[in-house]
Amino acid sequence: MENRHGTNPEDCKQYTTEKLRKDFLIESLFVPGEIKMVYSHYDRVVVGGVIPTGNAVKLDAGDFLKTDYFLERREIGIVNIGPKGKVVVEGETYELNKRDCLYIGLGKKDVVFHSEDASNPARFYFVSSLAHKEYPTKVLPIADAEPTRLGSDAESNNRTIYKYIHQDGIQSCQLMMGMTLLEPNNMWNTMPAHLHDRRMEVYLYFDMEVDARVFHFMGEPQETRHLVVKNEQAVLSPPWSIHSGVGTNNYTFIWAMAGENYTFVDMDVVKMEELK
Rank of each mutant, 00 (worst) to 15 (best):
E2D: 14
P9E: 08
E10P: 06
K13F: 04
Y15D: 10
T16F: 00
T16K: 05
R21H: 13
R21T: 11
L29V: 00
P32S: 03
G33I: 02
E34M: 11
V38N: 03
V38W: 10
H41I: 00
R44A: 10
G49Y: 03
G49S: 07
G49W: 01
V57E: 04
K66L: 10
T67M: 03
Y69I: 02
F70I: 02
R74Q: 05
I81Q: 03
V87F: 06
V88W: 05
G91R: 01
L96T: 00
K98D: 08
R99F: 12
R99S: 07
D100G: 02
Y103L: 00
Y103M: 03
Y103Q: 02
I104C: 04
H114Q: 06
H114N: 12
A118P: 09
Y125V: 02
V127P: 02
H132K: 14
K133W: 05
E134L: 02
E146M: 03
E146N: 09
S156C: 13
N157I: 06
R159D: 11
I161T: 11
K163A: 12
I165N: 06
I165Q: 06
Q167I: 10
I170P: 01
S172M: 10
C173H: 13
M177P: 01
M179F: 06
M179H: 09
T180D: 09
L182S: 12
P192H: 02
A193G: 14
H194R: 07
H196V: 08
R199V: 15
L204P: 09
M208A: 00
E209L: 15
F217N: 10
F217T: 06
T224N: 13
R225Q: 15
H226L: 14
L227P: 04
V229M: 09
K230M: 08
Q233T: 07
S241R: 06
G247P: 00
T248L: 00
T248F: 03
G259S: 11
N261D: 13
N261S: 12
D268P: 02
K271H: 15
M272L: 14
E273V: 09
E274P: 09
L275H: 04
